[in-house]
Design a protein around this nucleic acid. Structure first.
Length: 252
DNA sequence: CGCCAGGTGGGAT
DNA sequence: ATCCCACATGGC
């Protein structure tokens, strides 16, 4: 018999715990924000709606999330939000609105989000997919494969669309998720997107409301504390190897 | 100023 | 498969 060893809790056991910690620390996040609804009943002045995990039922609401998912690629939400507001102001809300715009002018509307030439092409491609007869519908969740077949739609954007526009339990893995899980010691560093996603899918009940909140909480935590240069003071995640309290446990 | 932000596709190795 | 780069603006 080998000497008994205290095993650290598995990643699978810690992911649900991490969720509880983050939720307690930061509270419900109210994703996905809809700037077009800012100030409306149940929405704050930026379009967040804490406590309501239902995706929009309207095609315009869903397409706003789809456009936002593209506009925020490698870009601060603030910049994507400005672009979204300009699109709304110009009457671009649904696929035919996109398809009917001059390319040059559409790109100009979304300038603030960066990469605007590429993103214009991505919006146009998605608009065509959701507009063409017999193609994807805004009334029912699309197959992940079909979203991925669109130019400019990778795994993260596809999962954001599935989860936040359609309420499908597909966990969103972004740069923040990698950074946080890496620091927690859950990753070796070379994991593929799907491998990280599987950690969440295997460890949690497949509920869209839970996935919605969890990803949003990771973003909030990574933006405010677990930054590139981490601010570990007062961090709520006590089991993190980098947590200040750990230094006290180190033997002399 | 430089760094960073809710990635993705394409080409070289 | 895996690395490397282009794509671009705005906030801190």
């Amino acid at each position: 018999m080998q000497p008994q060893r205290i095993e650290s809790p598995s990643t699978g056991a810690r992911l649900p715990r991490l969720y509880e910690i983050l939720l307690k620390a930061y509270g419900p996040q109210g994703w996905w924000p809809l700037p077009s609804r800012a100030g409306a009943r149940g929405f704050d002045d930026r379009g967040y709606h804490p406590g309501d995990y239902r995706p929009p039922r309207s095609p315009a609401g869903r397409f706003e999330i789809i456009m936002g998912a593209v506009l925020t690629q490698n870009t601060a939400w603030k910049n994507a939000e400005m672009a979204l507001r300009r699109l709304q102001g110009a009457g671009v809300r649904l696929p035919p609105d996109v398809l009917g715009r001059d390319r040059r002018r559409l790109a100009e509307l979304i300038r603030s989000s960066g990469y605007f030439n590429q993103k214009e092409r991505k919006l146009r491609g998605l608009a065509r997919m959701f507009h063409a007869p017999g193609a994807l519908s805004l009334s029912a969740p699309p197959a992940r494969d079909l979203l991925l077949a669109a130019w400019g739609i990778g795994e993260e954007t596809a999962d954001s669309i599935l989860l936040y526009a359609f309420g499908v339990s597909s966990f969103v893995v972004d740069a923040y998720t990698r950074r946080l899980l890496g620091r927690l010691g859950f990753l070796s560093g070379n994991e593929l997107y799907g491998e990280i996603q599987r950690l969440f899918h295997d460890a949690l009940p497949l509920r869209p409301g839970l996935f919605n909140e969890y990803h949003a909480l990771i973003v909030e935590h990574a933006k405010t504390r677990c930054r590139v240069k981490p601010l570990c003071g007062g961090c709520p995640v006590r089991f993190c190897p980098s947590h200040p309290d750990r230094a006290l446990e180190t033997p002399a």
